[in-house]
Design a binder for these strands. Structure first.
Lengths: 208, 208
DNA sequence: TTCATTGCTGAACGAAAAGTCAATAACTGC
DNA sequence: GCAGTTATTGACTTTTCGTTCAGCAATGAA
């Protein structure tokens, strides 16, 4: 006789990650308040009680989602800058295109919109996100621009301003797509936009 | 004897606008779900019951807020384009700077972030917002760029793409400021950024 | 001053969703 | 197999907040 397969299994180690993944999906789609823990549990293949085994409450789950999702993305880009040789505009393109790439596929890219929506309700978390992601990526791009200026490839501009001008459009387009996917009659291709933005940018940064 | 001033007054005509104003403030700060009608009422100087005299329910109040706030802003800009003579880059600057100006002072500018956060929870409203605001302003800028191309002032680019590239950074910076005002260690001046963005943009749009 | 009208209040209701916990079923070592 | 351990369940309680409405008080006309 084959043993009847159990109604559920004990998987203490896998649960937290699975619950966080489910929560990320729902939070970034509906927002924090509009997401029911019952739904998170169902999507994670458990019941609500189990969620409370691993997370103190809804707010702590939310924090865990942000913390777990946010950090790893930037390390890759930082080494890319460190090791680069050649034209700085080429590096800029590498960074922008690989970023656009990740935005299109990674589940984690929903975090931007989520943080924008909930920042004022979770001040400490907002600070964490700003430090770990916003400022850090801003610095990354400012760094590239700065080196470009020093090598004479770019004209003299405020690097931090430029960094904002580089990052803002991509994030915005992604956020827009996420929010208005159902209504936008002429959706943009993220990578095509990244290319367009890059061309505009590089010509804007060159000497006149 | 002076008559003891009444505990409250009847002000049927003024109430709706006051309630909408209060709701706008709280919605754009905390989001739709996290805003309590008790708080809206208190901020408007009434009680919850009064809110229900003028609005069917919370969702209808939300829709009213968006509708009342959003529409008038664009009309001004559209006449500006219609009546313009001279260099198209000058018009572009006029539009960007006046926009940045309004963003800094008008209470209505919190709507962008609110819509981004709640769009997926209110599909019909999202469609309304996209049609009345997003697409319309995108068309506005695309129009300017297009005329600039035809007059030979700008090189040939996709006008709709360019419109996105023009509008996205300003909106994004505004949204960022709103979300992360408390954490951002180096806040940007919106008008200064608008100027920077414009310079980059115009050089990017000129012939090589 | 009085009365009818009605804008407004605030207490009470109920649904929905957060949070709790005793019972239970899956696992583990003997 | 059996017994002890514990991860998981699901029904339960609690809380929060949108919504209702009977009654009160401001107003204006007579």
């Amino acid at each position: 006789m084959n043993t009847p397969l159990p109604r559920w299994q004990r998987r203490k180690d896998a649960r937290p990650a699975e619950i966080i993944q489910a929560a990320l999906t729902l939070f970034s789609d509906k927002g924090f308040a509009a997401t029911r823990l019952d739904d998170v549990a169902k999507l994670a293949g458990v019941t609500k009680g189990t969620v409370y085994l691993y997370f103190e409450n809804k707010e702590e789950l939310f924090k865990a989602v942000v913390r777990e999702t946010v950090v790893p993305a930037l390390e890759f880009a930082e080494t890319l800058v460190e090791e680069h040789q050649g034209a700085w505009s080429d590096l800029l393109w590498q960074l922008l295109s690989s970023w656009a790439e990740r935005m299109e596929h990674a589940t984690s890219s929903g975090i931007s919109r989520l943080m924008i929506a909930e920042a004022t309700n979770f001040p400490e978390l907002a600070r964490f996100y700003v430090d770990e992601v916003v400022v850090r990526s801003r610095r990354l791009f400012a760094d590239v621009i700065n080196r470009g200026i020093q090598s004479g490839e770019f004209r003299e501009v405020d690097p931090m301003m430029a960094a904002r001008a580089v990052t803002a459009p991509l994030v915005m387009i992604k956020v827009w797509k996420q929010s208005f996917a159902l209504c936008d009659t002429e959706p943009v291709d993220l990578k095509a936009f990244a290319r367009f933005h890059f061309d505009l940018l590089v010509q804007g940064l060159r000497h006149r």
